[in-house]
Design a protein around this nucleic acid. Sequence first.
DNA 1: CCCGGGTGGTGACTGCGGTCACCAGTATCG
DNA 2: CGATACTGGTGACCGCAGTCACCACCCGGG
Lengths: 211, 211
Amino acid sequence: MKEKPDKDYLLRKLRFLPLPLQEALILNGQLKQFPAGTTLLREGQYVSAIPLVLEGRLKVYAEVEAKRLLLYYIRPEESCVMSFSAVLEDRPSSIVAEVEEDVTVLLLPREQIHEWLRHYPMLNHLFFRQYQRRYTELLQNIEQVLFHRLPDRLLAYLNDRKRLTGHAKLTLTHRQIAEDLGSAREVITRTLKKLETEGSVRLLEEGIEIL
Amino acid sequence: MKEKPDKDYLLRKLRFLPLPLQEALILNGQLKQFPAGTTLLREGQYVSAIPLVLEGRLKVYAEVEAKRLLLYYIRPEESCVMSFSAVLEDRPSSIVAEVEEDVTVLLLPREQIHEWLRHYPMLNHLFFRQYQRRYTELLQNIEQVLFHRLPDRLLAYLNDRKRLTGHAKLTLTHRQIAEDLGSAREVITRTLKKLETEGSVRLLEEGIEIL
DNA sequence: CCCGGGTGGTGACTGCGGTCACCAGTATCG
DNA sequence: CGATACTGGTGACCGCAGTCACCACCCGGG
């Protein structure tokens, strides 16, 4: 029975949940930290725990034959719906999760999940909301891909990043952007130039400024 | 208090659910039928009930500026996740639902849903599975759109239809296919020809045969 | 009967964006 | 110091697929 020094931290981070659920999660969850750049989950892997992000940010991709498409970000108080399905259906993951900003996650062991879902309506509700959010996000994404041209998609992406980071100046390489959008580096360069002449962005040495 | 003559029918169709839940659904649900071609739900509409399909088939589209993309089908014992979110979050629908084969649906009033979700773990589980299924379907869809060419997408679509209807001969117009794939009629004609020369399909007067 | 609506079929054009090849600038490291 | 490996930048090319403008059918209704 080792005393958990993290308990105060956890209690603070889990305040958005009802108390009995907090206790259960703290007792059975596993607190972990990962530095930016870590790949938490690869395609085809099985998942043994559902991650609940407390701090930092994860990026989730679909990956097909070395090509990637950014699906969504996981921010504090959020979780990963793909891991839900992997756990609830016991199927391998079809996505890739990477750490974008150093994260602290609470790993919820799959054994207890079903029971918790029954006992704590709040957790159930949280999971539902997650599914619903991710679904509409994915839907918007597919609409972007199918019905909008690259300039629009790129601008939408940049605005997302702006909201996400809180900065109007983004320090992203063209290559990174290309990967997130499933496009090519040169194409992004060209398109950014185009957006600049249109006055939507300004290209600086330090990064891209959204106007 | 009118006697429900549909009760036997409903009991038969709801056998996949536990008995108390069956009773609750039968008591409060509304049985409805719609002929093929009916549009049940338009973009921007609010939803007041969650449809549970008992017979027939619905088609669900995303619609953006007169362009469509087929998202999924709803078959017996299934429901519509977009209506979940519309009900649970009280937001307007962003999709279109059409009847493809005459359907019988049981409409579950939104007022009771939350309570049922709490009281009947089975319903809760059913909803989760629905979300999960739709999510992976949508994911596959987006991968198709982004990473695969039209011939592949078309072939995948045709094989879906084959599984769905059970017939290897499909009676679809090129226009219908184009709408489902968010493409254009002429393009589908061309691509079908290409698939025929490759030996993947055979074009007959009565329809398309999948080989 | 013709007319209007639906089918499928085809050729020509076009543009988006992915690919290739290459260049220059900068930073890091042995 | 040169070697290497990142970055962004650019011009040429080209293929997929969306669009336009047709045509030939076939069918049902007035």
